[in-house]
Design a protein around this nucleic acid. Sequence first.
DNA 1: CTTGTTGCAAACTGTTTGCATATTG
DNA 2: CAATATGCAAACAGTTTGCAACAAG
Lengths: 156, 156
Amino acid sequence: MEKVVLIFKDYLRKRGLKFTPEREVVLREVFSLHKHFDAEQLYQNLYKRKKKISRASVYRTLPLLVRAGLITETLRCQGRTSYEHIFGHGHHDHMLCIGCGKVIEFRSEKIEKLQKEICRKYGFKPVEHRLGIKGYCRECQKKIKMKKKLPLDREK
Amino acid sequence: MEKVVLIFKDYLRKRGLKFTPEREVVLREVFSLHKHFDAEQLYQNLYKRKKKISRASVYRTLPLLVRAGLITETLRCQGRTSYEHIFGHGHHDHMLCIGCGKVIEFRSEKIEKLQKEICRKYGFKPVEHRLGIKGYCRECQKKIKMKKKLPLDREK
DNA sequence: CTTGTTGCAAACTGTTTGCATATTG
DNA sequence: CAATATGCAAACAGTTTGCAACAAG
């Protein structure tokens, strides 16, 4: 944990930016969470905990953490940009359950390798990639089977 | 092309929705394009061509096309929801160049298969998946090499 | 003490919605 | 003619920004 603080400080120093209390609080909150989050959730968490940091600062800090290589954007769920920390966590891909919203993380060396191969073939230099599979998790499949028929998709 | 019209009509009829001139115009425009697009671009195209369809109708029609299985959302670039048509085009994945914005489409049977395997392992029933690789295309790599140093990432 | 940062509120952007009117099946 | 669609403008949600006061290096 102290390591990420050092990395962030270093990132900031190198470009003449400042390590402020607000930024530190955001950083620590991010790394105390162990799942995906978005700016608003983070803000709410801090707010409840009486750390009154403005939304603006949260929105301004997250991109810095991305550039510092500490967090990354993930699948967009319903319009909000969501993030997860990446440091010491390594790359992985996601399955997102349409039924309950659950996120399953996985990693496949084979897929990683194939991707690199394909990039090479196209002369493409990959920087980041993201694989997301939407579908239904085990539990939600059961729930669905219990209903006689799937409703028509007439909901909004 | 007439085939997609039939599919859409069928989709609409089955759920008591109407095949209106506006919907037809949007549908035809979508299928006359051969690249990714977003709601605003579509609206602008139609507007220039004197087909005055309201933004609201465009926004209301696109989700119908998605549900009809004719188009699909793609990578989100800069905040807008972007789509591509899928009919007769088949599934494929994307490389997105950070330098010039170019989109390279590719498809790997091996990756598709591995994904299915992984889903099976997790008891996950996939509905849709999306693999996006961000990086630099051949041309942009050359451009970058020509500069002595990469600029610090201090831009917004 | 200079430069970057904060918080606030206002501005923006993409998208959705309520409603009166018009159109489809 | 009943039910759905349209266009408009207003409403929304998430995010960004201008600015005056403030704080880090």
